[in-house]
Design a protein around this nucleic acid. Structure first.
Length: 880
RNA sequence: GCGGGUGUGGCGGAAUGGUAGACGCGGCAGACUCAAAAUCUGUUUCCGCAAGGAGUGUCGGUUCGAGUCCGACCACCCGUACCA
């Protein structure tokens, strides 16, 4: 009898309807079961879901469905990170209103997400551009302002001198404005800041307790916060303007103070600003330094420039030793004091600078045995290397590294040269954006009262809808009426702040809002206390630093202002960072030799032997798709068409056209296939390459599972088989392995075990009852990945209720124990034989058996055995 | 530049310091078929007829034993504070 083919197109919507009708995924506060909060980083509503979304939300859904089956009351919400630049770009390019564009995108993406069958509680949905959301954010802004967590100061932005507008780093391409093409410069602007630096130490120390976060993320955050111990001291200056008779510097390498060659200040240092006023040469140089963008990458990789100011400083240990003071473009005003001393002998960047400007390079220490010869590069001793000080000062002796720094600080302090200072690299978080599509900053500028917070009763400060994008700049700034208001303090006419908030603010507390998404206050104490923290947070590793650090800070700030309990200051109990979905790129060249990219759906790709080949479908008559691979191979050999280049896999991006639309996959194969494929093959923390063959394989497997289910369904009642014990053992092992796989985020391994279990059932000759039991267990184990198919199997095989609600199966420990074990025998570390022994055989017995093994005897060829190592249950190694 | 990560068959990958290559794709062979598709079975790291040998990015080290630990390097990816 031909098995009935599984029809995903019919079955999937049917089951989603059943889940929706029974409100299976709606979370209730009064649910008596223990809570579990699983959250995937919410999407930016671009309008189309992509495979990265499918992978991210499928992972979360696997966890959510697994935890639900394990008896938890699962909170699994979804929302939209809806503010940001793309909406403004669309407005500029197509003249659409950012709000309307965003709302439409949200509707479109929701339509695309629904068919995937995620177990989401849609009653908690919100978008950050909802006034109900951003109004609460404004309210918290006012609370944080009152609590001293927010302040204003001047800071640098990218300035496009042609478009007269501020640019995001992303909009600066090779130092030029992306639209105007004009060289970008740095310009100072007064902006709002969160005092995240007040929490540097706490944010750093608390990382130690985030044991369910990836080590790499904790390490990256620790390095980002960048705690350092160093020496801060003042040089006496000679020839400096009034008020600059001392130059304060900070160094993490006071042990190299005797190797000083120059001092350098940032172009934004007050001294530089002072000199700029009277010296045109310095003014020109400082202007030169301000060219280019503000990004650290641009500054650090750019050419290192310096200008001798003519001012000198006196070495603190030798009043006769003067060092020139340079203005240098790589010194950041934000770090330390904005001034350094350079030790070229032991710092590569200083070495290059000194070489370029012909400065002295005195060594402080050399490798033991080496002499004080000119260096080819900065010398930093390796861990094991001993050094000898040739120009040190009391206190270092032969120490290097941290010990030398500590000793140097102690010595300097004892002789009155500066003091030890702990510094952090972490800078305060600038939240002002000179853009329309963001949360308005609720403050008012009054001519008499200055900066005045908006009254809470007037919140939300709503964005106006009638804005124009016909020219660059912030539409709020030029809106005819929006900014006009009255001062809450004195009642005089005043002007609203037209800057909006960084979208990172929106995403720094949405997880807390999900606990009470429609409340009239940012959070509700009871709900926040109950649902927080997020038990499992899942998202891309590209958020390892900024989003996750800002959220950790914001939770603390929310606690300080009474919006979160102290238990929620670390909002994410466990974090998982997933890899990207990649695809190979199909490229040809136009007449001018420029690359032209092709969508995977327009390309026919196959292997000839091991060699991958790709053709453009459009180059051929439509019947090309009907040809077999061998026919296609002949076609290629006949040079009837030109193959196109296959460029190795990269992150799916529109510009390279290496994108696969999840909707097409769902249309062809169904949601379960898409879900199964993104969970199989690659470990979730690593990138996964989308291949059409992989998707087809997933589809074929799910079809085989259904065919097996159908075959079992047709078995006569009361059939007796031989393999019931084996089936029970295979099931117990599958339950154990799949459970472990899901709990450990090793979904690819869980799926490999499901393949094995499927094949074990398929080969077995079991009784009707045993086979039905096995396939029901299989359906349950697959349910987190393939919820629709699992429901179909469950229903077909007489499962009680819904598969999604059935309690997670448990493995009988007695079935997991094997009686005998196969041990490999190595001779000098090379595997030469193996023996099968009872599980509990003593080592001495195993040793005798191993030495008596005929292959072992053959390989030993009478040589005396020096040593024999028996690792019980593992291996035997004979050393000769 | 700096910080972090990754590197294993033709491909995606598996492997508490203990049989390298589970599972899947692709390939090859076979069954079924007039034929093809679909499906099923077997096989598949490389060299070698075999015996055997080599093999986890490169070089070196620790160990009875290294993909795994240590040191140096190479390549690629992510982040780099206004992309989200």
């Amino acid at each position: 009898m031909r098995p009935e083919r599984y029809n995903a197109k019919e079955a999937e919507p049917k089951w989603r309807k059943v889940w929706a009708e029974r409100e299976l995924f709606r979370t209730r506060n009064e649910d008596p079961r223990p809570k579990y909060y699983v959250l995937e980083m919410f999407p930016y509503p671009s309008g189309r879901i992509h495979m990265g979304h499918v992978r991210n939300y499928t992972m979360g859904d696997v966890v959510a469905r697994f935890k639900a089956a394990c008896g938890f009351s699962v909170l699994h919400p979804m929302g939209w990170d809806a503010f940001g630049m793309p909406a403004e770009n669309a407005a500029m390019e197509r003249g659409v209103n950012p709000g309307i564009w965003t709302r439409q995108n949200i509707a479109d993406m929701k339509d695309q997400m629904k068919p995937l069958g995620f177990s989401l509680d849609w009653t908690r949905e919100f978008a950050t551009c909802d006034p109900e959301y951003y109004g609460q954010q404004q309210s918290m802004f006012l609370d944080m302002l009152a609590a001293g967590l927010i302040y204003r100061k001047a800071a640098m932005v990218n300035w496009d001198p042609v478009d007269m507008t501020v640019l995001a780093n992303e909009q600066v391409i090779d130092g030029k404005g992306w639209r105007s093409g004009a060289p970008v410069e740095r310009r100072e602007l007064t902006q709002w800041f969160f005092k995240i630096s007040d929490y540097s130490g706490e944010l750093l120390e608390a990382l130690d307790h985030l044991t369910n976060w990836p080590d790499k993320v904790r390490l990256m955050q620790a390095n980002w916060i960048g705690k350092s111990r160093g020496l801060q001291f003042a040089f006496a200056t000679r020839g400096a303007p009034d008020g600059f008779d001392r130059l304060e510097v900070y160094t993490t390498r006071p042990d190299t103070l005797m190797g000083a060659s120059f001092a350098a200040i940032s172009p934004d240092h007050p001294l530089a600003k002072q000199l700029e006023r009277h010296d045109p040469k310095i003014a020109a140089f400082v202007a030169e330094c301000r060219r280019g963008g503000t990004s650290a990458e641009a500054i650090e990789t750019g050419e290192k420039l310096g200008l001798d100011t003519g001012i000198t400083v006196v070495h603190p240990f030798d009043s006769a030793w003067e060092l020139p003071v340079y203005i240098a473009n790589f010194i950041l005003m934000d770090y330390g004091t904005g001034a350094i001393f350079g030790c070229p002998a032991h710092d590569q960047r200083d070495f290059e600078f000194a070489t370029k400007y012909g400065l002295a390079i005195p060594s402080v220490f050399v490798a033991e045995g080496a002499d004080d010869a000119p260096l080819a590069e900065a010398f930093a001793p390796m861990k094991s290397e001993r050094v000898c000080y040739i120009r040190g000062f009391a206190g270092e002796k032969v120490q290097t590294g941290d010990a030398a720094v500590t000793a140097a600080i102690a010595h300097c302090e004892s002789v009155g040269v500066g003091r030890g200072v702990t510094n952090y690299r972490l800078r305060d978080w600038g939240l002002s954006r000179q853009r329309y599509w963001g949360c308005p900053i609720p403050v008012i500028h009054c001519a008499t009262c200055g900066v005045v917070p908006e009254g809470k009763a007037n919140l939300p400060v709503r964005l106006p809808d009638d804005v124009t994008f016909d020219r660059p700049g912030n539409p709020l700034d030029r809106h005819p009426t929006w900014a006009a208001t009255t001062c809450p303090k004195c009642g005089a006419a005043a002007r609203r702040e037209t800057d909006t908030m960084d979208t990172f603010v929106d995403s720094s507390w949405y997880f807390a809002r999900f606990t009470a998404p429609h409340a009239a206050t940012p959070t509700l104490a009871e709900d926040a206390a109950y649902w927080m923290n997020v038990d499992q947070y899942i998202g891309g590793v590209e958020h390892a630093i900024l989003h996750l650090l800002y959220s950790r800070f914001f939770a603390r700030a929310m606690h300080k202002t009474g919006h979160l309990p102290v238990s929620a200051i670390e909002p994410f109990n466990a974090l998982f960072t997933q890899g990207m979905v990649t695809h190979e790129i199909y490229q040809s060249r136009d007449a001018a030799g420029r690359p032209v990219y092709h969508l995977p759906e327009d390309v026919l790709r196959f292997n000839i032997g091991h060699e991958p080949v790709a053709f453009l479908r459009a180059q051929h008559a439509t019947d090309l798709t009907e040809m077999t691979e061998s026919q296609l191979a002949e076609l290629r050999i006949a040079a009837a068409s030109t193959p196109i280049d296959i460029v190795p896999s990269a992150k799916m991006s529109k510009s390279k056209k290496n994108v696969v639309d999840p909707m097409n996959i769902i249309a062809s194969f169904g949601a379960d296939t898409a879900r199964w494929f993104v969970m199989s093959d690659s470990p979730p923390e690593r990138d996964v390459e989308w291949t059409s063959s992989g998707a087809e394989a997933a589809f074929k497997h799910l079809s085989r599972v259904w065919a097996l289910c159908d075959r079992i369904g047709q078995m006569p009642v009361g059939h007796v088989g031989r393999d019931d014990a084996d089936i029970a053992r295979a099931a117990a092992r599958a339950v154990k392995d799949v459970t472990q796989g899901i709990e450990g985020f090793a979904f690819n391994k869980a799926i490999a075990k499901l393949y094995e279990f499927t094949s074990a059932i398929s080969r077995a000759d079991g009784s009707t009852d045993a086979m039905k039991q096995a396939i029901r267990t299989l359906a349950q184990l697959m349910q987190p990945m393939t919820p629709h198919l699992s429901e179909s199997i469950w229903a077909y095989q007489g499962g009680v209720g819904l598969c999604a609600q059935a309690p997670w199966p448990k493995a009988d420990p007695a079935l997991l124990i094997d009686d005998s074990v196969t041990l490999p025998i190595q001779i000098n570390g090379k595997r030469r034989a193996e023996i099968s022994v009872p599980k509990d055989m003593p080592a001495s017995e195993i040793e005798k058996l191993a030495l008596a093994h005929e292959d072992v005897v053959k390989f030993l060829a009478g040589q005396p055995v020096k040593k024999i190592i028996v690792v019980p249950g593992r291996i035997i190694n004979v050393v000769v």
